[in-house]
Simulated scan of single mutants.
Amino acid sequence: MDTPDWNDLRYFLAVIKSGSLSAAARSLGVEHTTVSRRIEALEKVLGVRLFDRFARGWSLSTAGAALLPQARRVEEEIQGLLRLATGAADGFGSVRISAPPAIAAHWIAPRLAGLHAQLSGIQIELGAEPAYVDLSRREADIAIRFRRPLAPDLAVRVVATVKYYLCATPEYLASHNLDQWEFIGYDESLAETPQQEWLDAFAAGRPYVFYSNDLNSIAAAVRFGAGIAILPDYLATGLIIPDMISPVQRELWMVIHDDVRKSPRVRRTADLIAELFSSPAN
């Protein structure tokens, strides 16, 4: 029997994780025909049918289900090898940083130019991602998060405390009495964030005119006079409502996998990014 190609095994696991051929293709950034072809190649090498093909989609076969636990163990070993290789590499190469979209756009990206000389030989890849990436799968080298992870193999440190303010344009405040205020908030997917829970209590039944899962959209709606929102300090310049104190503050965490943290380039980048966050947000 020929030795299976690890990349083919990766496609097999992507279909399992994503739930469908098309979703796996999107997650891998390829066409669905590529996913199908790579799985067929793996089936040929293994001599088993991993999926039963139906008109409504693919279903894991009995043989595929039997091989799945071992395939996942192989994936863990490969990812561990790659993390250790990153840790053992020299100080040159790329470093991928994952951060919430608004943090990436308004706090990290504007300051990277000032770090260029200190990052000589290092290329930064900045992923603006609302969902948390999996550091154990090397989806990023450094992650910026609002929640502290609890996994024991992750190194964490607080890099900033983000303060939130009740915000509106001066024109909106001049044309609306307090009892006429209308609000802009996070949608249901973010309804349990501290800032949205506080805003709901403050609104006290007054109407919302706009919801979004995107902080940049919420901030834009405020700047164009759509209503009142609670915004982080790096988006609140010129919009803070006087004498309206919000108690909401959130710690921002830098997270790195222990294996990757051994890499000189990752350590150097992490230290510089931490310094970047120590400067006031604009």
Rank of each mutant, 00 (worst) to 15 (best):
E76R: 15
R53I: 13
G238M: 11
I97V: 15
E129S: 08
A99F: 11
Y172E: 01
A220P: 02
P69E: 12
A55D: 05
F210W: 07
L9T: 15
F183G: 08
E75H: 11
P170C: 02
E76C: 07
Q180C: 05
R83K: 09
A113M: 04
E125L: 09
L235P: 04
P110A: 10
N216L: 14
G114F: 00
D90E: 14
M1S: 13
I144T: 09
P232N: 06
E192P: 02
A274R: 08
F277E: 09
A151F: 08
F51L: 03
A65R: 15
F183L: 13
W107M: 14
I240K: 07
D271W: 00
M1Q: 13
C167F: 06
A66W: 07
S263K: 00
R137D: 11
Q195D: 13
H106C: 12
H106I: 03
A281S: 15
Q196Y: 06
L215P: 02
P101S: 05
A221C: 10
Q249M: 12
Y234V: 07
A155P: 00
R147S: 13
L84N: 07
P100A: 08
I108Q: 04
A191I: 11
I256E: 05
S278P: 10
L178T: 12
A113T: 08
A117S: 10
Q123K: 10
G91P: 00
H116D: 04
R96G: 01
I39P: 02
M1D: 08
R148F: 01
N216T: 11
S136P: 02
A85Q: 14
R147D: 14
A14K: 03
V74M: 11
V74S: 09
P207T: 02
T33H: 07
P207Q: 09
Y234T: 03
L60N: 05
T169G: 06
G238H: 10
E139N: 09
A71W: 13
H176L: 04
G64C: 06
V156N: 11
Q70H: 14
I78P: 01
V30R: 14
L67S: 13
F202H: 12
H176E: 01
S189N: 12
Y165F: 15
L166Y: 13
G47D: 03
R137Y: 08
D179R: 11
D258F: 01
T3W: 08
F12E: 02
G225K: 00
Q123F: 03
L154Y: 11
F202R: 13
L190V: 00
S94M: 02
M244Y: 03
F92V: 07
I39H: 01
Y234I: 02
A204K: 10
A201D: 08
S212K: 04
V159A: 04
R73L: 15
A270P: 06
G80W: 05
G57T: 05
P110R: 09
S120F: 01
D134L: 08
I108D: 02
T169F: 03
E182Y: 02
I142Y: 05
A203F: 02
E77N: 07
E129C: 12
G127I: 01
L119H: 05
L68M: 13
L126A: 09
A88G: 10
A229N: 08
C167Q: 00
G93Y: 06
P247F: 04
S120V: 04
L239M: 10
Y211D: 09
L115G: 05
E171P: 00
P149F: 14
